[in-house]
């Protein structure tokens, strides 16, 4: 990190239209959990332009292999074996290298390994459901996992989540912090899901749908899905020493 934080460009203001609004009556829990006042907007500063960094020393041998990591390599999880891979980029289309990517998901039957999940689909004794990795110098990451099942949830009378994997990405600045969900190409539940539908722009929702990627599949072993992620970028600082409008 540069010692002169001011030399690092401010973050490009977030395009809030690219994101779901806080309040969406069809996603019922958002109703009491959405602020009524507008957000306070101002230019980013050191608190948003710096952020935690993580090195490979935090990673264990199996951390990005969810098929094997719960048993530390002793026994594989049950389900459709898939590779999920892609790049982390910023809005300037530059790769985001050496950044932590975390994922979590249900098992093949749609059951989460969490003390609060009571869905009657059984746990898989060989599946934990969390993974993490650090992007390489080109912003590339990959996970080996099983495809998660759809599951019902108490929202409207008969709502089911599409198959999805939760993603958490850090970037290099606390103001880039993002959590989202990856969906799977062709899943008919995506466009029936009130959480997916919190995103009002269909094109934006489709950026969360990972296509099947046969070129990356390994014959007789696993299928592959490609999921690229875009984080906020930084503005150029070239003219920062001039007054606004000069």
């Amino acid at each position: 990190m540069s010692d002169r934080i001011q030399d690092r460009g401010p973050l490009i203001p977030r395009n809030r239209a690219a994101h779901p609004p806080a309040y969406d009556i069809d996603y019922k829990t958002s109703v009491p959990r959405s602020p009524r006042w507008s957000l306070l907007s101002l230019e980013s500063g050191p608190s948003e332009e710096t952020g935690p960094t993580f090195g490979h020393e935090i990673l264990g041998e199996w951390d990005n292999n969810l098929i094997m990591n719960w048993t530390r390599g002793k026994a594989p999880a049950v389900g459709e074996r898939i590779l999920v891979h892609g790049r982390v980029l910023d809005e300037n289309a530059r790769p985001v290298p050496h950044t932590l990517v975390e994922i979590w998901q249900a098992n093949a039957g749609g059951r989460y390994r969490h003390k609060k999940d009571s869905y009657f689909a059984p746990l898989d004794p060989n599946f934990g459901g969390c993974g993490r990795t650090i992007t390489d110098e080109n912003g590339y990451y990959e996970f080996l996992t099983i495809r998660p099942g759809a599951y019902p949830w108490p929202n409207r009378g008969n709502d089911w989540r599409p198959m999805h994997i939760h993603f958490s990405i850090f970037g290099h600045a606390f103001g880039q912090r993002l959590i989202s969900q990856m969906y799977f190409e062709g899943d008919p539940l995506i466009y029936r899901c009130p959480i997916a539908a919190t995103i009002k722009d269909r094109g934006q929702l489709d950026t969360l749908v990972a296509p099947l990627d046969m070129a990356k599949a390994r014959p007789m072993d696993f299928l592959a899905y490609k999921f690229d992620i875009v984080l906020r970028g930084r503005r150029q600082t070239m003219f920062e020493n001039k007054l606004e409008g000069m």
Partner: peptide
């Protein structure tokens, strides 16, 4: 330029991925 990936809720089981001991 690219458009930022849209956010989605972290959901009730965020701890599985972020705070496994809590989960």
């Amino acid at each position: 330029t690219l458009i930022e990936t849209p956010s989605q809720t972290a959901g009730p089981y965020v701890h599985i991925g972020c705070m496994p001991t809590y989960a």
